[in-house]
Write a protein that binds this DNA or RNA. Structure first.
Lengths: 218, 218
DNA sequence: ACAATATCAGTATTATAATATCGATATAGA
DNA sequence: TCTATATCGATATTATAATACTGATATTGT
């Protein structure tokens, strides 16, 4: 919805990257030194040309005929591209169960995300400690983000509060928003909103079921 | 990745539906009776033709020139399409923090998802009760799914276990999988895998930040 | 009653992503 | 050493989604 930013790698390709990374890690553990595009395509059920192009986009080593690509180098350049090494600091707003799950998920550290503060309006939650992260009152958002030069804001508040929270994050100088609320957020052009709409996924699932039940295939 | 199923509504359109629904609900609360495609497009920052086509795809009432569409009817037909009324029963495998968040999220009931059982391999978790849902041993998956005619399986286990769990769900006669593990899952053709890859979203965010930092726009 | 216009539905066009094709080349095996 | 071939990169084609355009129509205001 906000795609006026020039980027070398397409969004679709970026979405495939974590799957490549996961697969390459498996290969690395198996001490496999090289891998070809067709092989990865087969493993991930993708088109081989697409895989080759995605690899070319991250521009690691060029592949060699008959051999393919160097697993370790390819993996490194992908992790580099996705910033898995240099952590991006983030704040999370709305300290409900979803937020707690996100904070508890230590795996996100590996993906280059470091949550440094949580905010909530619920006075009961304020002051508490979730996985070592202090829950602060929501009116401190802008101030803290600006002071700590935070670039990512994660929104896990209910739909009705999302836009207000978003505005506060923007006021705090945030550059990207990860939005778990099922609403459209209005933001200035240069800010990216990445929507994680679980309802959208459910819509796809439900729609599939409806068709699958009408035309049973087994 | 698994798109050989004929469907009247495109996946992209389905992804937009929850946003339409949310917006229509707001309008309904404001006692607004009709709304035009351009108006919705403006509110959600979409193209008006796209909105009109999405509306046509759910085929509710036809719109009237100068007036637009009936909010209530449109909303009803969208909710009907997405199965918000008739709940789909689901099981969740992996009773970690993410699963707990999903189960705690009573909002999913409104989206037509009813989680009836949870599974885990961790003996400590087995037998416990999360939000009224019993945690059962993982080896019961296939059996219970088949017996209860469950159609949706939610996977929140670590990457390495995901494929095994997926196979068990498939063996249990599941039709759709909601996969939170950052791995590609191999399934028979007629089964839909809806990937909820949080790492992919982080990839997009991180990539945006990298570009935004190089070319600051404020 | 009639003119002006917002909006519609349908069709045409454009943009974007996915896939197919093709000549080149490095490796493996005869 | 030479031949066969897997794989490459590059380019062409196709498929899909987004957007622009056009004539029709219902409402609103004069």
């Amino acid at each position: 919805m906000n795609e006026n930013i020039k980027q070398a790698v397409t969004t679709q390709a970026l979405h495939r990257m974590p799957y490549y990374i996961q697969q390459l890690r498996v290969l690395q553990e198996q001490k496999t030194e090289t891998v070809s595009a067709p092989k990865i395509a087969e493993l991930l059920n993708l088109n081989e040309v697409q895989v080759r192009k995605d690899f070319a986009a991250v521009y690691s080593t060029k592949g060699k005929p008959k051999m393919g690509f160097l697993v370790t180098e390819l993996l490194a350049s992908m992790e580099e591209l996705l910033g898995y090494n240099n952590a991006n600091e983030a704040v999370i707003v709305g300290a409900g169960s979803l937020a707690q799950a996100i904070m508890a998920h230590e795996g996100f550290q590996d993906y280059g995300l470091k949550i440094v503060a949580a905010f909530d309006v619920n006075t009961e939650r304020i002051g508490s400690d979730i996985n070592g992260i202090k829950v602060l009152p929501a009116d401190k958002i802008s101030n803290l983000c600006r002071r700590m030069k935070i670039h990512i804001g994660i929104i896990t508040v209910p739909a009705v509060q999302a836009q207000v929270v978003c505005d506060q994050l923007v006021a705090g100088g945030i550059l990207a928003v990860w939005n778990f609320a099922p609403v459209h957020l209005s933001v200035p052009d240069h800010i990216l909103v990445q929507n994680e709409n679980l309802a959208a996924s459910l819509a796809v699932l439900s729609n599939h079921l409806k068709h699958a039940m009408i035309t049973p295939e087994f």
